[in-house]
């Protein structure tokens, strides 16, 4: 296992390259939207002035169903909303929570703003990196964890914080992270095993 020091990690904080696209897109990359996706997108139209404004919601809906937004999915949304793909890409790459490359099932958004930094988020990042062998922007080999950085989550009094899904983890430590990681590994392995055909 490779081990990383805090300074090494700091010097590499360059965030994810925006235009990077995965070479091995797993998951649903259908070039057509499913009926359900279309239905959900349709229900958004009433809330916006024009079709183009629904772009962000449509991307979110597609991501909900497919885990991430592939080039094919983006094109499908673009065709459905009748807006240029470049315009949709502009929206997709602006919002951090629209994933344009495959992510793991647990996306860890580690806050890197000032309070969390004072409280040692860089150290925690090194820890995660050593534990899961992933740098920010990467997904662990088992496909469970993706590590991303995020600006302030607004819980500075409970720093350092990490957002996973809709749950915010407060006052995280190496120990609490390890514990959470172990839990998640077991949880996903069990679900996978359950889903295997007998």
């Amino acid at each position: 296992m490779n081990s990383f020091s805090e300074t090494e990690v700091l010097s590499e904080i360059k965030a994810v390259e925006v235009m990077e696209q995965s070479n091995t897109p797993p998951g649903n990359t259908d070039t057509e939207l499913s009926e359900e996706e279309k239905r959900e997108i349709d229900s958004e139209f009433s809330r916006y002035e024009d079709r183009a404004s629904v772009g962000l919601e449509a991307l979110r809906i597609v991501q909900k169903h497919r885990g991430w937004v592939s080039d094919e999915s983006l094109q499908a949304v673009s065709d459905y909303l009748e807006i240029p793909p470049a315009q949709l890409e502009s929206v997709a790459t602006y919002f951090q929570l629209i994933f344009r490359q495959p992510v793991g099932r647990e996306v860890m958004l580690l806050c890197k703003s000032a309070s969390c930094w004072i409280m040692g988020c860089s150290r925690l990042q090194v820890h995660i990196r050593n534990r899961l062998q992933i740098a920010p922007g990467q997904t662990s080999e088992d496909g469970i964890f993706t590590l991303l950085e995020t600006p302030c989550l607004g819980d500075c009094d409970k720093a350092p914080v990490m957002l996973v899904g809709e749950q915010v983890h407060h006052n995280i430590t190496e120990k609490s992270i390890d514990k959470w990681i172990e839990q998640k590994i077991i949880q996903h392995k069990t679900t996978d095993a359950d889903q295997l055909p007998d």
Binding site: A15, M19, D71, P85, Q87, T93, Y94, Q96
Partner: peptide, 19 residues
């Protein structure tokens, strides 16, 4: 034109096409 846009954000703004 419809195929040149600003992509990304923050320090990573990119001006280009979708592909």
């Amino acid at each position: 034109g419809s195929d040149l846009e600003s992509l990304g954000r923050n320090n990573q703004i990119y001006f280009g096409r979708q592909k």
